[in-house]
Design a protein around this nucleic acid. Structure first.
Length: 150
DNA sequence: GCCAACGTTGGC
DNA sequence: GCCAACGTTGGC
């Protein structure tokens, strides 16, 4: 079992939206590195930190779970979607997604600021300068360190 | 809104 | 293959 962190802008899709919907296809990933994590690394049952980005209080707000194998992101074939990719074909789809299921909200948000203050997390990918990946692996030790803050 | 840090694109 | 221009992400 692997651990991950997935970012979402709460104005677009928040942890409460996931709670309400219970399970959601994580569409719109258009970065090759992130795609590779989804396609090659994720397995059903993997645990996911749900991270709110680009907002007043960036941080981890909940836990989700990988609920499907990777499959082609349908929005890449839809000309009306903002994620449409004219270069992608159904025979050779370029972008993949997994379904993500709600597990629980954290008792409280663990903010980016708090994470940055912990030396135990200094080498966490999320905290490295200039990191813009929306899907990141989380080391097991880091997962537990972060949960212990809750 | 600013801007640093990327990733991507395309001319050469 | 290089690299400048451009677009995007995301903290602040």
């Amino acid at each position: 079992m692997n651990y991950w962190l997935m970012k979402s802008e709460p104005e677009a899709f928040s942890i409460d939206d996931l709670k309400r919907k219970k399970c959601e296809p994580w569409d719109g990933v258009r970065n090759y590195q992130a795609r590779n994590f989804i396609r090659d690394g994720m397995q059903v049952g993997d645990q996911v930190f749900f991270y709110h980005s680009n907002c007043a209080q960036p941080g981890i707000t909940g836990i989700a779970e990988v609920a499907s194998d990777a499959y082609p992101d349908p929005t890449q074939f839809d000309p009306k979607s903002k994620y449409f990719d004219p270069e992608s074909t159904r025979d050779r789809p370029r972008w993949m997604l997994v379904d993500v299921a709600f597990v629980r909200k954290l008792k409280r948000s663990i903010t980016l600021k708090e994470l940055q203050a912990l030396s135990a997390l200094a080498d966490m990918k999320l905290l490295r300068k200039g990191n813009r990946l929306s899907v990141l692996p989380v080391m097991t030790e880091h997962w537990h360190t972060i949960l212990s803050l809750e």
